[in-house]
Design a protein around this nucleic acid. Structure first.
Lengths: 142, 142
DNA sequence: ACGGATCGTAACTATGATTGTTACAGAAGA
DNA sequence: TCTTCTGTAACAATCATAGTTACGATCCGT
């Protein structure tokens, strides 16, 4: 299975909201920028709302807006919010416990994987939605 | 799609081969330790052979054996060998080029993702198959 | 030379995650 | 009250992965 695009789409959404803090944006509008279906956007926004990054307003003239400083939202926060799993997966079936390697390989790998993930997370925590917004704006040709 | 288990299985295989360097192991034998089908094992061993980590001997009394020092094979090498993709995926459909954020978000993300991957790879390069083997052996109860 | 054991690989199925889509009830401003 | 949105369920479409069967090619040991 390919890696999910949720993390990327969530960052796209948050960057878009960060660049339009004056008025709420509808899932329909966001979907046109991302080039997908509004329901996909609402699903992701629901996850981001759970973490308090955005809030929604139903009804006419409703929509979504950012409720935190873009520089306070790190990419590590966003990754956690959208449930991106570990980049490492163990065996789908448990290995053979009668084999010394089979019996112990998962325990040996668990620590290595956890530390590798921590390393990556620490790196992602050094970039924020604000960083992304500035990077995007610096590239635009008006 | 969930993350693939190829990396984990490849490490399991290599650790098993490293612990049995005296005689070749058959895909059948390895499959019993991993608890899967021999063809799955042969497919992975084929990828590992391309990188020169293992070699195979067809025919009666054939099988597979390690051709490199376990301490010379890093987890980063193995990960590359089995084609684990990036943990980050871009949009499946290109975002809207008429939107300033849509037009530039991928360029902004590319660098961040590449650097995060490099960080993780650098970390994985610090552990080897030899490390894993010793970790596994230290846990075994004879 | 034969027989059995193994690799090498194609082809197909099964499974599961993700994404996209339709549909519709509820909420809220104008 | 009408229109515009959210919120969410239900379902279809797509795709990667893993598992399985099958079978030809290879090679050791006798």
């Amino acid at each position: 299975m390919g890696t999910s695009t949720r993390f990327t789409i969530a960052l796209h959404i948050l960057t878009l909201l960060a660049s339009n803090r004056a008025q709420p944006l509808t899932s329909e509008y966001i979907a046109r920028s991302v080039n997908t279906n509004p329901v996909v956007i609402r699903r992701l926004l629901g996850l981001l709302r759970k973490r308090g990054f955005v809030s929604s307003q139903p009804g006419n003239r409703g929509g979504w807006h950012l409720t935190e400083d873009p520089d306070a939202i790190t990419l590590a926060d966003v990754r956690r919010a959208v449930n991106e799993g570990s980049p490492f997966a163990m065996h789908s079936q448990p290995p053979n416990p009668a084999c010394p390697v089979g019996r112990n390989i998962q325990a040996a790998l668990t620590g290595v994987y956890a530390e590798a993930e921590r390393t990556m997370e620490a790196h992602l925590a050094r970039t924020t939605v604000g960083t992304l917004l500035r990077s995007v704006l610096a590239r635009r040709r008006k």
